[in-house]
């Protein structure tokens, strides 16, 4: 027989992007400790709906820690107190009976609140459109081992590719900087042979779009790495800094001059 918890919730309620928000005190009684954090909110919402009130809006999708939809800050930490765990994979057994839990949205100017805990993270989509891809010939699969790469390099790129784009790095950063996300997405492709042809324009394009979206600047405090549910390393930020300097040098000095096409 599992235990149940009685909790005091302080939930951020905001009816729309430009509305003024506030913390609402909600008593969450008889929450089974086997429930996930999102299931706890489901139970609370069902009771709110039964009362005829407005349920708490929050983003969720796969609920198995791989989609990056959860976007809530629990007691000051994006995705809550557990290391390397998304909010959907956080379980109520990690809390104690009688706990007060603060639940608020990811806070950043570049992530405007849509409603309550749901935020607009389309800035990340714009950054991806600015270079988070490779241009390849589609069609039949090419021969195996056509692109030689060491196991270590492939593993390293995979570490960056683990990023699920949830935005916890932005939420935890003291400056709401998106450097961990951008550096993981750029670094993953920049360390693979397929990413080389577009490397410089990728780095310049993604950083430019990141700046335009209104994210802050990295101050090397590494809150992002500590909050990341996929434990993306800040070494990717180091690489992005280095690649950005090299891309600027390339763009300013060594890039081939455009002749406007048509040959000589």
């Amino acid at each position: 027989m599992s235990h149940s918890l009685n909790l005091q919730l302080k939930v951020w309620r905001q009816s729309s992007t430009n509305a003024k928000g506030h913390f609402q005190d909600i008593v969450a009684k008889d929450i089974p400790e086997t429930a996930s954090f999102l299931e706890m909110l489901d139970i609370v919402n069902q009771r709110i709906i039964t009362e005829g009130s407005d349920p708490i809006a929050f983003d969720h999708d796969c609920r198995e820690g791989i989609c990056g939809a959860c976007s809530m800050v629990i007691n000051g930490k994006p995705h809550g107190p557990e290391k390397a765990t998304t909010a959907c994979q956080l379980h109520m057994r990690k809390f104690k009976d009688g706990d007060t839990i603060w639940i608020e949205p990811f806070r950043a100017k570049a992530f405007p609140v849509i409603k309550d805990l749901a935020v607009d993270r389309s800035a990340f989509d714009r950054i991806m459109q600015a270079g988070g891809f490779i241009s390849v010939r589609t069609g039949s699969v090419q021969d195996a081992n056509n692109l030689p790469i060491s196991k270590e390099a492939a593993d390293s790129a995979m570490d960056a590719a683990e990023c699920i784009g949830c935005g916890a790095c932005v939420a935890s950063c003291k400056n709401a900087s998106a450097m961990l996300f951008v550096s993981a997405k750029a670094g993953q492709l920049n360390s693979l042979p397929q990413g080389q042809p577009e490397k410089h324009r990728r780095v310049l394009g993604m950083v430019k779009t990141m700046d335009e979206a209104g994210f802050g600047n990295c101050t090397n405090q590494f809150e992002c790495e500590a909050a990341c549910p996929k434990e993306i390393s800040v070494r990717w930020i180091t690489k992005l800094n280095r690649d950005y300097a090299l891309a600027t040098l390339h763009d300013a000095v060594t890039a081939p001059l455009s002749t406007g096409g048509g040959g000589d």
Partner: peptide
């Protein structure tokens, strides 16, 4: 200039403020 941009990037502060590993000096 960078600090001003950083402040502007988060206008609404968290209700429950928490620091995981940033050092006092860095802040």
């Amino acid at each position: 200039k960078l600090t001003k941009e950083n402040r502007a990037a988060r206008e609404d502060r968290y209700g429950y403020s928490h620091t995981i590993q940033a050092t006092k000096s860095s802040r």
